[in-house]
Design a protein around this nucleic acid. Structure first.
Lengths: 365, 365
DNA sequence: CTGTGACCTGATACCGGTATCACGCGGAGG
DNA sequence: CCTCCGCGTGATACCGGTATCAGGTCACAG
């Protein structure tokens, strides 16, 4: 086995480069590390030797020594979800441009997974963390606080967390929801179904309880509910718990719930969906009920996509600036890592209602 | 500033734990590292001290020492693309389950970016690499070979690379394409448009040149072309370059190209699209031309999604096992890292034609 | 009472970098 | 001619872990 006593090791170190160049380890280190004095002649020799051996600095060793890893940790609900994938792309693009790489972890909305993810990132000594946290209450943020206490800057993305005074990059969820519902109201609708998502067992009967439930759940869900209620209030339309769906917005559940709303004596004539799965689920329910949009029921949903535009008729949707969301979060984090004093504010990005053809007046009018 | 001379450092080290516990550094290290002898009593003391200080081992330092990082590098064309996001999810799920984390990089189909990405991963000393490479020719794989030479195992995903004898986890692209086109032919179509994607300037006029062009491009594109040709051959339908589109499958370009095929004297009556953007682009062209599917033109595309199912009529699509693709790639890589001898074969996963309602006989029949 | 070995422990030499510092050498100035 | 200084270099002590090893303690057998 002649390949076993290879002369050039697979992963040459600074010492090997130094030996190859016939200089001291320190000289090779200074040349390769780009610090301190090295004469032009020796520099050439070292560089040539490094090139010959294919030397590449061990970033881990460097990080242990310097204390910085040039790595960002990213914790999302689900990297397979197109929304988060888009956010991730924004994070990835801007951090790479600034010389940082990223470790991504998905939590699937499980707080324990999130805690574990934070620990992984602490262990790997990332320079900062971007997180779309599933945490809500004061008692659920210990892991994030722990990272902060260790001096690791954290930026929230997509979801603010009330009990955490941190930079957060989000969209104007409340405004977006209100705008969408207003559009529906302006078209003449009063029975507007809200395809919502907190994991409550059943829809609270009163407004007060509803709001309370909202604050016990994901910030985005709470904001979108408030926006829905805002629009209803402005138009003096009373809130009806029968028109609100609760629980995970999986396509199946949405389909069943929307079917229920559609079967009500005083049935829903418009639907506002707060997620992509909610839209596709609603569409399924419509078809099953033999109803067509916008003729029988109007529809507006969150998260525009190429598909929404080619539907027949094309769907009116809320477009979120996904890339910007990630990019901005990375910018804020990178600035903090760079030494800037964190603003600890909410950076609110504008969403956009893309008006197409899924809204029309209710049947009777 | 009393917080400055903090007694408990933000990121305590083994030495600090040892001091706190009143034992030697080595004893603390053995306890925390879980190797060698430690008496029950001292172990307790060390553990208690570690707990008090909130000790978490520095994974980077450990990696420098042990030579393994428990980190996988993943290089994809675009993490923002739902297909790759799904693959990434598969990779992420199975590697996390085995104690590995992942660093993801997007290349946007740029070879230089890919080379840079490999270097980043080499520098960060990942234990293995999964890559959906944009490399094709023998002259484009030096960076991958370099990683291999350094002893870093590499597994290809989605795209095989002819000049690289490595494990590759892919789907049966050729079969899938042939099956789809056969379905179209069986419905009676003979003028089948192929919305393809190699970045050639124009469609080669002859079969021979076309095949040559195919081998100069992404493996997936080549395979799908071969499958298209296979089906045509079996049915003795001559290949017509006018029915093939070339160049990046962006929605705009697809729309224009499909419009062209639709305007041909002997126009296209069926379309086979090799990517999601190709499908949405085709749909736009159909609408612009005032044509409906499946009545005026039949349609089959790659990459099923929830949207395709709720279209009206619902689309017949090829479903790729995205999660499995990533999961399998991670499994193969992890096994290799674990010491298994790499099989260096193509692991071909089955895709599935999800038959819905976008295929009907051509208008005339 | 000594020899032997099992059981523990701390010292110490790694890993591959960063960064400082002592010192040799040569030239300029007194 | 000697001193001093600056340039350039290698030695060396870090960083925070892993892993080995020498040696001390103690029980028990001979």
């Amino acid at each position: 086995m002649p390949s076993d006593r290879d002369e050039t090791p697979a992963q040459p170190t600074i010492s090997e480069v130094a030996a190859e160049a016939g200089v001291g380890r320190a000289t090779a280190a200074r040349t390769l590390g780009g610090y301190g004095y090295v004469s032009a002649e020796l520099r050439e020799r070292v560089l040539a030797a490094a090139d010959r051996l294919g030397y590449r600095a061990n970033a881990l060793a460097r990080s242990v020594s310097t204390g910085v890893s040039h790595t960002l940790g990213v914790i999302l609900a689900d990297i397979g979800n197109p929304f988060f994938a888009g956010v991730m792309r924004g994070i990835s693009d801007t951090s790479r441009a600034r010389g940082f790489d990223t470790i991504v972890l998905s939590t699937y909305e499980d707080l324990e997974e999130e805690v574990a993810a934070v620990n992984v990132l602490i262990d790997k000594r990332v320079d900062g963390v971007i997180i779309a946290s599933t945490a809500v209450g004061r008692g659920e943020v210990a892991h994030i606080q722990a990272a902060l206490d260790r001096g690791i800057p954290v930026v929230l993305v997509d979801r603010a967390v009330a009990s955490l005074d941190l930079d957060a990059v989000v969209i104007d969820n409340r405004d977006a929801a209100r705008g969408a519902v207003e559009t529906l109201i302006e078209a003449g609708h009063r029975r507007i179904g809200f395809v919502w998502g907190p994991p409550a067992a059943q829809v609270p009967a009163t407004r007060r309880e509803l709001l309370a439930e909202a604050s016990r759940n994901l910030w985005t869900d709470g904001e979108r509910l408030r926006g829905y209620l805002d629009a209803l209030d402005d138009a003096r339309i009373p809130f009806d718990p029968e028109l609100v769906m609760v629980g995970r917005k999986t396509e199946d559940r949405v389909t069943r719930e929307v079917a229920r709303m559609l079967a009500l004596p005083d049935r829903t004539t418009a639907l506002f969906c707060t997620e992509t799965e909610a839209v596709t689920g609603a569409l399924r329910a419509l078809r099953a009920a033999g109803l067509a949009y916008p003729r029988d029921v109007a529809l507006i949903g969150f998260d525009d996509s190429a598909w929404a535009a080619v539907m027949d008729p094309p769907l009116t949707m809320i477009e979120q600036p996904v890339h910007r969301l990630g990019a901005k979060a990375a910018e804020v984090l990178l600035d903090t890592i760079g030494g800037a004093e964190p603003a600890r504010t909410m950076h609110t990005l504008r969403s956009r209602l893309v008006v197409r053809s899924s809204v029309a007046p209710p049947p009777g009018s």
